[in-house]
Computed example of a mutant assay.
Amino acid sequence: MTEITTQKLEQRLQIIEDKLAIYELIASHPPSADTGLAEYTAAVYMEEGTFNRGEELDGAKGVDAIAAFILRPAHEEAIKSGLAHFTGLPLIDLRGNKAIVTSYLQLLQLDKQGEPREMANHGYSTGYRIHRVVVNRWELERHEGRWKIHSRTLLPVDGTDAPRELLARGLSDVLKATR
């Protein structure tokens, strides 16, 4: 192989490794939130990280405050009521040691008031209801060889312009990178 070919292969391999690591980071959010594992949350946020949940809900600044979010009694109550975070495949815009990730997240809750239904080979269930769907914008940085969250903004898909703009921004970022 020529030096140029080797360099191009190394660059392509780095992109693949980065995207896999970012997929794993984003995919780890639901299990960490649904188990209340604050240690994990603290490990994946930058020290000065921010968590913005829009105008309707409170957020947090700093890794300790963000990690404490899932230790709240109200979050534990949500977990015990059948909370399940369900994420969609993220759109990743790599920018060297930084990345912008755009994704959807559904918050599902056990529907305790639903009518029990049977599914062949799976037993009975009252089912789940979608409590909320949100758009996420994750701003990541490579820190000591690992991808970490610098900031996360999530906005409910509620018909307003803000979540739509967040999605469009993610698409335009990726479009610019491909030109």
Rank of each mutant, 00 (worst) to 15 (best):
L57P: 00
I79V: 14
R132L: 11
D161Y: 15
L110R: 00
Y124D: 02
F69E: 02
E77P: 02
S151M: 11
K176H: 03
G59S: 01
K148M: 08
D93H: 14
E141S: 08
G82P: 07
S81L: 15
R146H: 10
L155D: 02
L57I: 14
D64Q: 12
G123V: 10
A120L: 08
L71Q: 14
M119V: 13
L110D: 00
H143I: 15
G114I: 07
W138G: 06
I100E: 04
S81T: 05
V63R: 10
R53W: 04
R72C: 10
Q109K: 10
I79G: 08
Q113T: 05
N121L: 15
E76R: 11
K148Y: 02
P156R: 08
V134A: 09
S172P: 02
V63L: 05
L155M: 03
R152I: 15
K80T: 05
L175E: 02
A67H: 04
G96M: 15
V157C: 10
W147G: 03
L108P: 00
A74W: 00
H122T: 07
G96T: 07
Q106S: 13
V134R: 00
L91I: 11
D58L: 10
A168F: 13
V134Y: 01
D93V: 06
K98S: 15
K112I: 14
P156S: 12
M119S: 03
E55N: 08
I70E: 02
L105M: 15
N136W: 04
V135Q: 03
W147I: 05
H150T: 14
Y104V: 13
A65E: 05
E139W: 07
G54W: 02
L171E: 01
A78Q: 01
E118F: 03
R95S: 10
D161E: 13
T126V: 07
G59R: 00
P90V: 12
A67S: 02
Y128P: 03
L91T: 07
T126D: 03
R137A: 09
S151K: 09
G159Q: 07
L171M: 06
V133Q: 05
L57M: 11
G88D: 11
K112S: 14
I100L: 14
N121W: 14
E144P: 02
L171N: 00
L105D: 04
R117G: 04
D161P: 10
S172C: 07
L166N: 02
L171D: 00
E165Y: 11
I79A: 08
I100Q: 12
H150E: 09
Q109P: 00
G123I: 10
T160V: 12
T126W: 01
W147F: 07
G88H: 11
